[in-house]
Computed example of a mutant assay.
Amino acid sequence: MGSEIERKQTFEEKVKGRIRDSIGDLITDDDLGRLVERGAEELFFKPRIERSDYGRTIEHPPLVHECVKELLSERMDAALDRYLEQNKETVEKIITRMIEDGGLGAITRALSRVIEQPLFDASAAMTHNIEQRIANLESRP
């Protein structure tokens, strides 16, 4: 377990320390600080570009977006569950109103369009069939 001072080091300070240990006195502390800051900016806050087959590029969101999403997704799911449970009646009223105001009507119209023509065709065929049978019966001696 590290000392209190080690635990308080920032990410950038840790990276800076490792680089300093690796390259010694080849770079000043100020230059090294700027390099680490720029690297952290590039790594966490700029979109990531992936080069794929045939020269295509795919842009991914910055790494910080994925980290935050991962950390917060469970909390957000739990908060949404709590909200829905605490406001069950309000949510049910909103859903009911949406269905009544248009959602159900749109579904009904879509089903009607799909079903109307086949029903009309079947009705016409049945009417024609009945009329033919009646005509056959009437034409018999």
Rank of each mutant, 00 (worst) to 15 (best):
G2R: 07
G2L: 11
E6D: 10
R7Y: 09
Q9R: 09
T10R: 04
F11Q: 07
E12P: 01
E12H: 08
V15L: 09
K16N: 00
R18I: 13
R18K: 14
I19F: 02
D21K: 15
D21C: 11
I23S: 04
G24Y: 03
L26K: 11
I27F: 02
T28N: 01
D29Y: 01
D31R: 00
D31L: 01
V36F: 01
E37A: 07
E37P: 00
E37Y: 02
R38H: 14
R38V: 05
G39N: 03
A40L: 05
L43D: 02
F44H: 04
F45M: 08
F45C: 06
K46P: 00
K46R: 15
K46I: 05
K46F: 09
K46T: 09
R48E: 13
R48Y: 09
I49G: 04
E50M: 09
E50P: 01
D53R: 09
G55N: 08
R56A: 05
R56N: 06
T57K: 05
I58C: 05
E59I: 15
H60W: 07
P62H: 04
L63V: 12
V64K: 13
H65L: 08
H65Y: 11
E66L: 09
L71A: 15
L72C: 12
S73Y: 08
S73Q: 14
E74V: 08
E74H: 14
E74R: 15
R75S: 14
R75M: 12
R75V: 13
M76E: 15
M76D: 13
D77F: 08
A79Y: 06
R82F: 11
L84A: 07
E85A: 10
Q86D: 14
N87I: 02
N87R: 05
E89C: 03
E89I: 05
T90E: 12
E92L: 06
K93L: 03
R97M: 04
M98W: 10
M98G: 06
E100Q: 09
G102D: 00
L104H: 06
G105R: 05
A106M: 09
R109L: 06
R109G: 02
A110G: 10
L111A: 07
R113G: 09
R113Y: 10
Q117F: 10
P118A: 04
L119Q: 10
L119C: 11
F120R: 14
A122F: 13
A122D: 11
S123A: 14
S123W: 07
S123D: 10
A125T: 12
M126D: 12
T127E: 15
H128I: 13
N129R: 15
N129S: 15
N129P: 00
I130R: 07
I130H: 05
E131G: 07
E131A: 14
Q132K: 14
R133I: 12
R133D: 05
R133T: 12
N136G: 11
N136A: 14
E138P: 00
E138S: 07
P141A: 13
